[in-house]
Design a protein around this nucleic acid. Structure first.
Lengths: 356, 356
DNA sequence: TTTGCATTTGTGTTCGGACACATTAAATTT
DNA sequence: AAATTTAATGTGTCCGAACACAAATGCAAA
C-alpha cells in the first residue's frame, strides 16, 4: 500500500498562484474569471495531465441520476424478457452510485402505445434515456425532443441513422446474415437449396430482417457459390395453421439443406415443425438464447444460434448512460456487438459466463 | 436529478443511540466495544439494509494498491502479447482509483526464471498478484506463500486445482476440445480421419493440451460417431524441418478431413503447410486471434478459431483484484470464459468490439 | 476519597472535488 | 472623494467512511 501522489485541484491552485475556487471555475467554466487568472491556470493545465478524482467528484456532487428505459413489454416476448434482465442487472450495478433506472414498457404490437409511453417517460424528466426504437416514424420526433432538451439517449437493438445518440448498441445485421450464410455453407457441396424464413407477429422490424437476408444472400454471390439457391418465406405467426402449411410447402423444396430463421421466436417455431415432420438432416440456423431455442439446440434440431445478446445490450446501454452522467465519458457512436455463434458444445460456457 | 436518501453511518449512530465512531468499530470489529453498545448497534444493523458508500470508503482510506502481474514475456510469443495488452488496458482503467499494475515477465521456456521473477515480484510487497502459472511445480510454493501472507491472487490461463485463488479465469479446456470436435464434424459424413496436432516449443502446458485432446476425442465417442478416426501428432516447433516432414506424413493419412491444432502458434504453422502443399479441402480448427492466424482465417485456410481471449483474461483478472482490494468484492472461484467461435464472417465484429 | 490505569466511546480531521458564501478589488455613480 | 455596484477570487462546508486522538467512564488499589 504505497501512498501515491495524484495531482489535485489544490496542487493546480498552488502552481498557478490562485485559489482552488478559481481553478474549479476554470475547469467548469462557471462564473467570471479575469483574463490574467485564466491564462495562469490554463498554462498549468496544459503542462500537466490533470485527471480529476472521479470518486471525489461523484461523492461531492450529491446528485443522483434517473435513467428512463423505453423498451417493449417483456411479458409479450421472451426476447425482450432477456433485455429486461439486463436492465435489472444494470440497475443493481449502478444503484450504489445514485443511479436509478425506471422502465417504461410499451406494447410491442402497437405504435400508438410507443408514443404515449414515451410521453409518460418524458414527464418524469429523466437525466438520460435508453430506447429500443422499433417504431421508426414514432421514434424520430422523440429523439428531436431529447436533442433540444439535451437529454442524452442511447439506442439498442434497432439503429436509426437519422438519430444522434450517445451511442447505438447492437449488431451489424448485414454481417449477421452473412454469418448465418457461412454457417449454412460449411461442409455443403454440390447444388443445394436454402430458405430464409421471416416469422414475425408484427411488421415493425421488416427492415431489420431484410438487412439480415441481404447479408445472407450476398454471401453466396460474393463467394461465387452459384449452385446454391435461396428462397425466402415471409410468414406471420398469428395464424399457426397457415404458417405450418406454408412451411410444409417449404420442406418440399427439392434438395433443401438448410433454413435460416431471422427472428428469435421464428427459430423455435421452425424447429418444432422440423422435429414434428422428422426432417433431421436440414440444418437450422436461428437467433438468440431463448429457453425454447436452447431446448432445440441441445436436442440437435437447431444447429446454430446467433446470439444478439439483448441482455448485454441493455446492460451496456445503461452503463454508457451512467458513465456519461457520472463521469462525463463519451462513447463511440456505433458500439457493435460480436456476432456470437452458439452451438450445442459451447452453449454451457455462454450460459455460465452470463451469471457472473 | 433527485436527491435520494441512503442510510449512512451517522444514521445508524443516531438510531442506535451511540456515536459514529462506535458504529464504525462494530462494522469493522476494531477496538473493544461494550456488550451493551454492540447489542444496540447490531439490532439496528439487522433491521436495516446498510450498504456502505463505496465511493466514500475508497476516497476516505487514502491508500493505493499495487498489483503485481506474473506472466510470460510478451516478446517471446504473440499470445502473451495479447495478454500484455489486456494488462495495459486494465492499468489505465484502474489508475484513477489509485491502483497501479507492475508487470513481472518471466522466460516462457525457463522454469528457473519463473522462480526468480516471482521472487522479485514478492520483494515489492504487492497487495495482490495476477499469475499465469504455466509451471506447475514452481507455482505451488509461491501460492503457499501468498496464502500465509494473505495476499489475494488470481490465476489466468492455467488452472491449478490445488491453489486457492480469489478466482481462476480461463477456459474449460475439455469443453474447448469438444467445441473443436463439433466444428470438425459439421457436414461430414461417411468414414473419415481427423488429426489432433500439438505443436509447442516447451513442455510446460502438455496437461493443458491433453485436456483439449480428451474433450475432442470424447465428443466422437459420446456422439457415437465411430466411423471417425482420430490420430494425434505431438510436435515441437524447435526443429522446423522435422516438423514439416512429420506434417507431410500426416497429410498422407487416408481420407483426412480435418486438423485440430491445440496451440495458437501451432495453428498458423499448420495453416502455412496446408497452403504450401495445396491441401485446401482439409478443415483446420485452431486457437486465438494472433495476427498470423487472422491472415489464414481471412484467406480461408483456417476455418475456425476458438478464441481464448488472453487479453480479456488479463483484464478481468486485474479487475477482480482491484474490486477485491478497493470494494472488498469476492468472486466465483471459477470464472470460465465463453468458448468463442471465430469465423471469416464474424471476425471483424470481434475485432471491432475489442476496441471499445 | 483520591490516584492510577484500562476500557469504552465521542469528536475531529482527512480524502478531493463541488458549490455556496464571504471577501476583496476594481469600476461606476453620485 | 465617498458611496455603491459589479466583477473577481478566496474561504469554508459538505458528501460518507476511515482512522487518530481526546474525553469520559469504570474499577481497583493506595
Amino acid at each position: 500500500m504505497s501512498n501515491h501522489k495524484n495531482i489535485t485541484i489544490k496542487d493546480i491552485a498552488k502552481m498557478s498562484g490562485v485559489s482552488a475556487g478559481t481553478v474549479d471555475r476554470v475547469l467548469h467554466n462557471r462564473g467570471r474569471i479575469s483574463e490574467d487568472a485564466l491564462q495562469k491556470v490554463v498554462t498549468v493545465l496544459n503542462q500537466i495531465d490533470y485527471k480529476p478524482n472521479l470518486l471525489a467528484r461523484t461523492l461531492g456532487s450529491k446528485k443522483s441520476f434517473r435513467i428512463a428505459v423505453l423498451v417493449p413489454d417483456p411479458e409479450q416476448d421472451p426476447y425482450w424478457m432477456l433485455c429486461a434482465n439486463g436492465i435489472r442487472q444494470a440497475e443493481e450495478e449502478w444503484s450504489q452510485y445514485g443511479v436509478t433506472v425506471e422502465p417504461y414498457f410499451f406494447d410491442l404490437f402497437d405504435k400508438a402505445s410507443f408514443h404515449t409511453v414515451a410521453g409518460k417517460a418524458n414527464e418524469s424528466n429523466p437525466d438520460g434515456v435508453l430506447v429500443a426504437p422499433i417504431f421508426y416514424h414514432e421514434a424520430l420526433p422523440i429523439f428531436e425532443m431529447y436533442t433540444t432538451s439535451s437529454i442524452p439517449y442511447v439506442l439498442i437493438n434497432t439503429n436509426i441513422p437519422e438519430a444522434n445518440p450517445l451511442s447505438f448498441i447492437g449488431q451489424d445485421l448485414y454481417q449477421s446474415g452473412s454469418v448465418g450464410a457461412e454457417l449454412m455453407s460449411i461442409g455443403q457441396n454440390g447444388a443445394y437449396a436454402l430458405a430464409v424464413l421471416h416469422i414475425y407477429e408484427d411488421v415493425h422490424n421488416s427492415v431489420h430482417l431484410l438487412e439480415k437476408e441481404k447479408g445472407f444472400r450476398e454471401y453466396f454471390t460474393q463467394n461465387k457459390l452459384d449452385d446454391c439457391t435461396v428462397v425466402t418465406y415471409d410468414l406471420s405467426n398469428h395464424d399457426e395453421a397457415a404458417t405450418e402449411k406454408k412451411i410444409l410447402e417449404l420442406l418440399d423444396t427439392p434438395n433443401l439443406k438448410g433454413i435460416f430463421s431471422t427472428t428469435s421466436s421464428g427459430s423455435f417455431l421452425a424447429a418444432s415443425l422440423l422435429e414434428k415432420h422428422g426432417k433431421n438432416n436440414i440444418r437450422l440456423v436461428g437467433y438468440d438464447l431463448l429457453e425454447e431455442n436452447l431446448q432445440y439446440l441441445k436436442s440437435g434440431v437447431i444447429d446454430f444460434l446467433i446470439n444478439q445478446n439483448p441482455k448485454h445490450q441493455a446492460f451496456t446501454g445503461i452503463s454508457h448512460l451512467a458513465n456519461h452522467l457520472l463521469f462525463r465519458k463519451n462513447f463511440h457512436p456505433l458500439y457493435l456487438f460480436p456476432l456470437e455463434v452458439i452451438t450445442k458444445q459451447n452453449l454451457s460456457s455462454y450460459l455460465n459466463s452470463a451469471i457472473h
